[in-house]
């Protein structure tokens, strides 16, 4: 079968030049990152800002901890009650972040794809957890979930307890971190051209397959970002959790509460030791998320 040569394959001269094309590509990419001039100045600003906001407080943390010495540090950081606190904090934050990934996608989808009465109000309500002082949120949630509250009362006959259990902590964290996932996914869905879905449908794919194969990869980086933000915020959350958690040692005592109580006893060294461990672990988690994310979007940045 004789093949009709397409235009740029037909002119033989262009074929071997792929090598040069690649160089052109690299140069264009380099030029692209120079849209804002003054790389030196902007790097300087970035470094100074990061140092002041992040690094200086952190080195202060490390300095404070060093007053304990190695053995003091280990016994403070690895005390069984503290270990249980890490576990509660990490597991509950992780669960809340995962729940919010699922509901974040659903909410963002509904808010961008459908027009219905009250859409704007619902859209505005998403930010409520940020606007509310966390303690207020905590008290309100506790009131609802306790045995006398609406939800807790309804569940009590079924022997399901929310307040003063880990489930309660997850509820508080889910409430507080919901905006992170919704607000990172929503703009991506808004910008996503419908034409990709139509292309999938024209090729005979079901709606479910179009979502799984075409839309989901597009929003994956945003979901990961939202997950990272929600998880990190959940780890540090204190105000809304303390009321609903009940704070039973080894069961529902979160790490930030342990830090607070150590601070209240002027036990700065031990408080910062616990904080430092939390910081390290969450840095590792965030770094991991970043790696996954840059892999996910590497094809299109090429």
């Amino acid at each position: 079968m004789k093949r009709l040569l397409p235009p740029d394959a037909a002119s033989g001269a262009r074929r071997p030049s792929r090598h040069f094309e690649d160089t052109g590509e690299t140069m264009r990419r380099k030029a692209g990152s120079r849209i804002i001039p003054g790389f030196g100045v902007s790097l300087g600003i970035t470094m100074t800002f990061i140092s002041m906001i992040v690094l200086i407080p952190m080195s202060f943390l490390a300095l404070q901890t060093s007053s304990l010495g190695w053995s003091g540090f280990w016994s403070a950081a690895l005390d069984p009650r503290v270990l249980a606190g890490y576990e509660v904090s990490f597991l509950c934050s992780l669960t809340a972040a995962l729940i919010n990934c699922l509901f974040g996608v659903i909410l963002a989808w509904v808010l961008t794809r459908y027009k219905f009465p009250g859409r704007r109000i619902m859209d505005g309500l998403i930010e409520l957890p940020f606007a509310l002082p966390t303690a207020v949120a905590g008290i309100a949630l506790t009131a609802i979930c306790s045995d006398k509250g609406w939800i807790g009362g309804a569940l009590a006959p079924l022997d399901i307890k929310l307040a003063y259990t880990r489930a309660g902590i997850v509820i508080a964290l889910t409430f507080i971190t919901l905006p992170f996932t919704v607000r990172t996914i929503q703009p991506v869905l808004e910008r996503l051209d419908r034409v990709y879905e139509e292309a999938g449908l024209m090729l005979g794919a079901s709606r479910e397959r179009v979502f799984r194969k075409i839309i989901f990869p597009e929003i994956t980086p945003a979901i990961l970002t939202g997950f990272g933000l929600a998880f990190a915020r959940g780890l540090g959350e204190y105000g809304s959790v303390v009321f609903i958690a009940g704070n039973m040692p080894f069961k529902t005592e979160i790490a930030p509460l342990l830090i607070m109580s150590k601070l209240e006893q002027f036990n700065y060294g031990e408080a910062t030791a616990v904080a430092l461990v939390m910081l390290l672990v969450s840095s590792v988690v965030m770094f991991f998320i970043n790696c996954v994310q840059s892999r996910a979007s590497s094809f299109i940045k090429e």
Binding site: V195, A199, L201, M202, G204, F299, I300
Partner: peptide
């Protein structure tokens, strides 16, 4: 008849290639 079942191939104006697929 649904779009995907009409036996039609469609080339979109900006191609609408799936960015995450080779």
């Amino acid at each position: 008849v649904e779009a995907g079942r009409r036996g039609i191939g469609f080339v979109f104006q900006n191609y609408a290639l799936f960015r995450y697929m080779n």
